[in-house]
């Protein structure tokens, strides 16, 4: 999400929720009894940060995507430490590369970090993988959790953009665009996550997160003790959600009543607006257009003036430094 796609109200709301989650996560991380948690969080954050820089193309769509890394982080660090780590990655992307936007940070934290670390990992990954280190279970859990995280995140982007009143695109059509693309990205992320986790499980299984490394009073400890009866329900929920997501995506793609219909409508002459006479020159809205033109002219003048001053100051600075050297 970029700043331009959110209204201040949505930014404030999501920012408040994200800040609360960060505060909770920070207190949970303090309870973790693991000596190497600080360097591990740093390294994993750097790893995911580097991985997010790699964009891969999605066949057949003409678009590209990058992994989020929340499931991978959660499987190594646990959900709360992973959440803090992923938040830090998103903040660095925002503050170092201006990628994502400052006001949209709350939206991005909810769409990417909260969905993957606090929803997909405990509800999808853990019930499927359990404490087993079998490659097929890790692979199934990684793919399912990554797809669910991406799909929920994509739905979040759609909802936030719609609530901000930025796009005129109907919600269903917007979802029909977002969900299939993110289904593909989720599947690729799931495979990549599984490849790394299977390697770690084979050669260094102690690197992977275990509930017993956290404080027993934390929520992850309770989740582990109750997972015996809960697991079939959660596996069922995961499968149902996957089927629902897949079916919804298929339906959305198969019924293009949104965009294609609209493009057809746009190209039709009968639907062109006829409220304004074709010969009129700005009959009712000329002041608005004049305002735009005026604002542009002033900004260009401002830019020209500041550029001239900037170059003069720089030249004067260079001249003075040259004289100083002589």
């Amino acid at each position: 999400m970029a700043d331009a796609l959110v209204s201040p109200a949505i930014a404030a709301g999501t920012g408040a929720i994200a800040a609360t989650l960060i505060a909770v996560a920070a207190s949970k991380v303090k309870q973790i009894r693991r000596d190497d948690i600080i360097p591990l969080m740093g390294v994993m954050g750097a790893f995911v940060f580097a991985a997010q820089m790699i964009n891969f193309s999605i066949p057949g769509t003409g678009s590209s995507g990058h992994i989020i890394g929340g499931v991978l982080l959660s499987a190594v660090l646990g959900p709360w430490a992973a959440f803090i780590t992923l938040c830090s990655v998103l903040i660095i992307q925002c503050l170092v590369f201006a990628d994502g936007g400052l006001l949209a940070l709350g939206c991005n934290i909810l769409n990417m970090a909260a969905t993957s670390c606090l929803i997909a990992y405990p509800l999808i990954y853990r019930p499927i993988s359990g404490t087993s280190l079998k490659p097929w279970r890790i692979t199934a859990a990684s793919i399912a959790a990554s797809i669910i995280a991406l799909e929920i995140g994509a739905a979040g982007v759609t909802l936030e953009t719609e609530l901000s009143g930025i796009t005129a695109l109907p919600t269903s059509t917007f979802l029909a665009f977002m969900l299939p693309i993110h289904l593909a990205i989720g599947a690729i992320e799931g495979v990549a996550t599984a490849a790394v986790l299977c390697f770690l499980a084979k050669y260094r299984p102690e690197t992977l997160y275990s509930d017993y490394t956290a404080d027993e009073s934390s929520c992850t400890g309770r989740f582990a003790s109750g997972s015996g009866r809960l697991r079939p329900v959660l596996i069922g929920f995961a499968i149902a959600t996957l089927i629902f997501a897949g079916a919804f995506t298929w339906l959305a793609s198969a019924n293009p009543d949104g965009l294609e219909w609209s493009i057809e409508k746009v190209s039709g002459i009968s639907d062109m607006p006829s409220a304004t006479p074709a010969t009129a020159f700005m009959p009712d809205y000329d002041s608005r257009f004049a305002g735009i033109v005026g604002a542009i002219i002033v900004m260009v003048m401002l830019w020209a003036i500041t550029t001239i001053i900037f170059h003069r100051v720089r030249n004067a600075h260079q001249n003075s430094s040259t004289k100083g050297k002589e």
Partner: peptide, 26 residues
Amino acid sequence: LLVFIGIFNPIYDRTPAFALFGITIN
């Protein structure tokens, strides 16, 4: 990203705003 999100607005929001040299701007 901005173009991807914004390009649908001219398609869906076709309320005339003003006319410029005889062309209606939505």
